[in-house]
Design a binder for these strands. Structure first.
Length: 690
DNA sequence: GCGATCAGGT
DNA sequence: CACACCTGATCGC
């Protein structure tokens, strides 16, 4: 829970995600996303009164956040006072003190945060330096390096302070299975269940909060079944989400809610009241998304845990894990980092102790040139060998970013994968897709392995058909940092008795599920598989012209046939509904012409004076007329391509991979869903046993 | 009657 | 374990 008080030391006249107390005096407000704990005071009468008196005070947020906020009548009074800012569009704002007339200019850029629809991070640039407020975020390893606007001159910007989501900033939460792993676990469980008959339905026991939309959209897309929800009017202008939801209770996937839902479920009743279809009773399982985490040296990650005869818990996290936070902060390498959240059991000092080594000040003693913090360009640039060479080989201008060794080794792909990609882009791309498929399927195998061993002490061995061996060419997986175990393919097949205790979830007793097999889905998360963009599916925020295919193509969200499914893992999981879109009147042309994009523009001409898109922002004086570096590009054309396909070239393949057969997996899943016994043979002892 | 806060629930 | 809510009780205005 955020304990950020609303103000940043560098820019105390603006307030972010807090609207009470001192924040009542702010010259401008910012809302990172639409979760209640970030909206304290936002509908209070005191602020409402202030708004009525101070006509120059506005709330800035993403278009999706505005849409979600205004869906609630309690916040409608904000309607005329919200100014939306397009994502990845540096926008100048005048901060005016209405009493004195004093004015301060600031440039704000919204960066996708991957936390829930509309969620953003705010990058502020002004006379007191560049600061980043992350709000809540879930970004996979390496994602900061792909955010163009965190960079300038091909290098990460000089960031004074980061106000960071430290929800899981504790080694205890070292790793959380990636979005893709969690999604595929839920997907296959749901698939195996609902494919049994039209009377088999799944209830997703989700909380009342935004953030599950990408789960709904992906399940719907993959299974061809819309998800039943109580309300969908908030998504009325977001077709990418809307099309996957329904208020028709006659569907096999439900995410509806009711105060007595758990009680209902015990009586085979869905929260919406449905118990049968065509007078035939339904068979329902519940899947409850919840955060699961694993220690640093834990290799097993069971993304699905059976908690009862028909109940499952599925891994799901809105927030970055400890290692993701460290990757993010280490990459940004600010002068200061302030925690927005103090995890339970930790103190402020302790969190700061964790953050400090990732900041610049801690590494001032050993000044040694390291070409770190480089922008990992998307497809466009990565395939351009000339530019790539230039960027890598030329000594970079000051200020040099000196990083601790951790960061050097933590981003090997910056150096190795881009080189590979330009040599063999097509082959790599193939390998990536191949790897992704294997990664998912092997996860399932591992899960079953664990399931078996954790419950029945079976000594049988898992045999992998040699024919399924993947041909991954010479592409190798990046190495982990030296002091952490190196993820290897063998680790996927570790025996259960090697799993640290913390990774073992409680499972129903063997009597409860009528046998020894508690269906546990284990998948290995080596931290590198998360290079796939976590910005998939409805976590981002864009207003676009619904039909526009030009500047921000929607082609990545098309439904694919089942035949295509097996070859399209990256499409489905990485890009499916990547952009939450709101249909509205702003066209791509306007964007490209750097015309003011504030939604209020047309109705509020004054806003032109106070909000404007800044064509490019140089460092370190964004306001001044400092010359831009040669890497500066027309922002609005480059950023979209980048964010949508960011990680396609950075997914490592794994040597010695072995492909399980689809039919085999399917039958295992069906057994799993039914709670039947699964006999899985164990592989010979791993080469990587610890 | 409303809002803020807390406890307790999922 | 946490999260992001929800409900209900209590208090103060």
């Amino acid at each position: 829970m955020s304990s950020f008080q609303g103000q940043m030391t560098e820019y105390p006249t603006i307030s972010i995600d807090r609207f009470d107390r001192e924040n009542l005096k702010a010259r401008a407000y910012f809302l990172s996303h639409c979760h209640k704990d970030h909206m304290k005071g936002l509908r209070a009468p005191t602020l409402k009164r202030r708004l009525e008196c101070s006509l120059k005070v506005f709330l800035y947020c993403s278009p999706v956040t505005k849409e979600l906020l205004l869906t609630s009548p309690k916040y409608r009074f904000w309607e005329k006072r919200i100014r939306t800012i397009e994502i990845e569009t540096p926008t100048q704002i005048s901060l005016v003190d209405e009493a004195s007339g004093e004015k301060e200019e600031i440039v704000v850029t919204l960066l996708p945060a991957g936390h829930c629809p509309g969620s953003v991070m705010f990058l502020f640039q002004g006379n007191n330096g560049t600061v980043l407020y992350t709000g809540d975020f879930r970004l996979a390893k390496g994602e900061a390096s792909r955010m163009e606007l965190l960079h300038s001159g091909g290098r990460v910007k000089d960031i004074q302070s980061v106000y960071l989501d430290t929800t899981f900033c504790d080694p205890r939460f070292y790793q959380i299975p990636s979005r893709e792993e969690c999604l595929s676990g839920i997907l296959e469980l749901a698939r195996s269940w609902i494919s049994r008959s039209p009377y088999h339905v799944v209830w997703l026991n989700c909380k009342a909060a935004y953030g599950y939309e990408y789960l709904f959209t992906n399940l719907s897309e993959e299974l061809g079944v819309q998800v039943h929800v109580d309300k969908l009017d908030m998504f009325r202008n977001m077709p990418d989400i809307l099309h996957h939801l329904t208020t028709d209770r006659n569907t096999q996937i439900h995410a509806c809610r009711h105060p007595k839902a758990e009680e209902y479920f015990q009586w085979s009743k869905l929260p919406c009241g449905v118990t049968s279809k065509n007078k035939i009773p339904l068979h329902t399982i519940s899947i409850k998304p919840s955060t699961m985490w694993f220690g640093e040296r834990t290799r097993k990650t069971n993304v699905i845990v059976r908690t009862g005869e028909s109940s499952y818990r599925a891994c799901f996290s809105f927030h970055s894990s400890y290692s993701e936070i460290k990757d993010f902060l280490g990459y940004i390498c600010p002068a200061n980092a302030y925690p927005n959240v103090i995890p339970v059991g930790l103190t402020v000092d302790k969190v700061i102790d964790i953050l400090k080594p990732l900041c610049r000040s801690s590494q001032s003693t050993e000044l040694k040139y390291k070409p770190l913090g480089k922008l990992k360009r998307a497809r466009q640039t990565q395939l351009d060998s000339e530019e790539e060479d230039e960027l890598f080989d030329d000594p970079l201008p000051t200020p040099l970013r000196h990083k601790v060794p951790y960061q050097l080794t933590c981003h090997p792909e910056v150096f190795s994968m881009t080189r590979l990609s330009k040599k063999q882009p097509e082959k790599l791309q193939q390998s990536i897709e191949c790897y992704k498929i294997e990664s998912m399927q092997s996860s399932l195998l591992t899960n079953f392995l664990d399931c078996e061993e954790s419950n029945s002490e079976s000594e049988e061995e898992l045999e992998i058909p040699p024919s399924a061996q993947g041909d991954l060419g010479s592409v190798t997986a990046p190495q982990e940092k030296a002091d952490v175990e190196v993820p290897q393919w063998e680790a996927f097949f570790r025996r259960n008795d090697e799993i640290p205790e913390e990774s073992l979830e409680n499972v129903p007793s063997s009597t409860e599920i009528g046998g020894s097999q508690s269906p546990k889905l284990f998948s290995d998360s080596d931290g590198e598989s998360t290079h796939i963009s976590s910005q998939n599916s409805s976590q981002s925020t864009h207003i676009t012209d619904q039909g526009s295919q030009g500047w921000d193509s929607q082609s990545d969200t098309v439904l694919l046939s089942s035949q295509e499914r097996n070859n399209r893992e990256t499409t489905s999981l990485d890009k499916g509904a990547y952009r939450t879109k709101i249909k509205e009147s702003i066209s791509g042309c306007q964007m490209e012409q750097n015309i003011l994009v504030s939604q209020e523009t047309h109705s509020d001409l004054k806003s032109k004076d106070e909000v404007s898109i800044v064509p490019s922002v140089g460092e370190p004086t964004p306001m001044g007329g400092e010359k831009h570096t040669l890497e500066e590009k027309p922002m609005l054309t480059s950023t979209h391509a980048d964010s949508q396909s960011s990680s396609d070239f950075e997914i490592p393949s794994t040597p010695e991979t072995e492909l399980p057969k689809q039919e085999h997996l399917q039958s295992l899943y069906e057994k799993l869903a039914m709670g039947e016994s699964i006999v899985v043979k164990k592989r010979k002892s791993s080469l990587l046993d610890i």
